[in-house]
Amino acid sequence: MRFFRQLLSRVLQALALVLAVVVLNFILVHAAPGDPVETIAGVSGGMSPELMAQLRLQYGLDKPLYVQLAVYMGKVLSGDLGYSYFFNLPVASLIGERVPATLLLVLGAVLSAFVMGTTLGVLSARKPNGVLSQFITVLSMVGFAAPVFWMGIMLVILFASVFPILPVAGMRSIDSSGGGIADVLDVLHHLVLPTFTLGLVYLAQYSRLSRAAMLDVLGADFIRTARAKGLADRVVLYKHALRNALLPVVTVLGLQFGNVMAGAILVETVFNWPGLGRLAFESVLRRDYPTILGVLLFASIVVVVMNQVTDMVYRLIDPRINAQ
C-alpha cells in the first residue's frame, strides 16, 4: 500500500510539473517577437490585410493571451495539440513522424556515451597516475570543451571532403530500398556521425565523473576488506566498487536527458537529421507556435519520465534505497 501511495504521489507531481511547463512555454513562446501571420505572408510572397485578419481569426490570434492560453490548455488536456500553421497538419502527427528518428539518435548517443565514458573512467581509476589515465583525462577535457555544433561542422568537413567514407546528411541514402537488413545498415551508417557528435560531450563528463567516483569508492573500508579476503582484483573492481560508483553517474544521466534533447536540435540541424530537433528549428524560424509548443511538451514529458526512471534504477543499483 505504501508503494502505491508513493507511486500515485509521484504521478500527480509529474502531471502538475508538466502542466506548469506547458503554461510557462506558452507564455514565453508568445512573448517572443514576431507574428506567425506575417511570417506566412512573407513566405507566400505577400498577403492582403483582409486575408491576414482572417488568418488571425482562424488561428485564434485575435483573442487576448489569457483566452488563447485557456483554449490551448483545454485542447492539451483533451489530447489535441492543434494544427501546424506552416505544415497545415496535426501537430501530434508531425511529432509522431519525427519521434523515432530523435529517439534513435538520443538513445544511441546517451547509451554509447554512458557505456564508453564509464569504461574509460574505470580504466583511468585503476592506475590514476598512469599513461592511460593521463591520456583519457586529456581526451575527456577536449571532448568537454568542444561545442556540439563546432564538432559537428568539423566532422562534416572531415568526412565530406578529406575522408568521404561516412554520410554527413540525412537518415537514409537516396537509393535506399526502404526495408530489410540493407536499410537497417544504411540507417546505422548515417547514424555514426550524429551519435558521435552528440555523445562526445557527455562521454567526457561520464568518464570524469566515473573516475572520481571510482577513486572515492576504491578508498573505502569495504573495498579494503574485500581485498583482505583475497578476492580477485577484477571482482573487487567490477562487482563491489563499480556498483557503488555508478550512483552519481546515473544521477547525471537522468538529469541531463533534457540537455541531450536540446543538443539534438543542433546536431539534427547540422546533419539534416529528420527528427524533432530539426522540426523545432524549422518551426522557430517560421513562428509555428503550435508545433513549437508540441515539441516542448513532448520534451518535457520525456524529461519527467526519465527522472522517474532514474529513481527506479537507483533502487536496482543500491538496495539500501528500498529500505528507506
Rank of each mutant, 00 (worst) to 15 (best):
I265Q: 03
D80M: 11
D175E: 06
D216S: 03
A31C: 12
D221E: 12
G179Y: 14
I27Y: 09
V305E: 09
S207L: 03
A212C: 03
I174W: 08
S48I: 04
M306V: 15
N25P: 04
F298E: 02
L111Q: 07
A41C: 05
L123P: 13
V236R: 02
P64S: 03
H30M: 01
G277D: 10
A14M: 15
V309S: 02
L17Q: 05
G199Q: 05
V138F: 14
Y66H: 08
F86W: 14
G263H: 07
D311V: 00
V184K: 07
I136D: 06
T197I: 01
L166S: 12
Q308L: 15
A125L: 08
L123C: 05
V106D: 04
N88A: 09
M52W: 04
A109C: 12
L285V: 09
T102L: 01
G82K: 01
F281S: 07
V22R: 11
R234W: 13
V192L: 10
N322Y: 12
L65S: 05
R287V: 08
T310A: 12
V115N: 00
S78A: 15
L198G: 09
V267G: 06
V22H: 11
T195R: 04
A70T: 15
R278M: 11
M306E: 06
L276E: 11
E50V: 08
K127H: 15
L198E: 10
F257C: 06
Q308G: 15
Y66G: 05
V260H: 11
F86S: 15
F86A: 14
L218C: 06
K63C: 01
A41D: 01
G79I: 06
A41Q: 06
L132I: 15
A169Q: 13
D311K: 00
L7H: 07
L104I: 04
W273D: 15
S84K: 02
P100L: 00
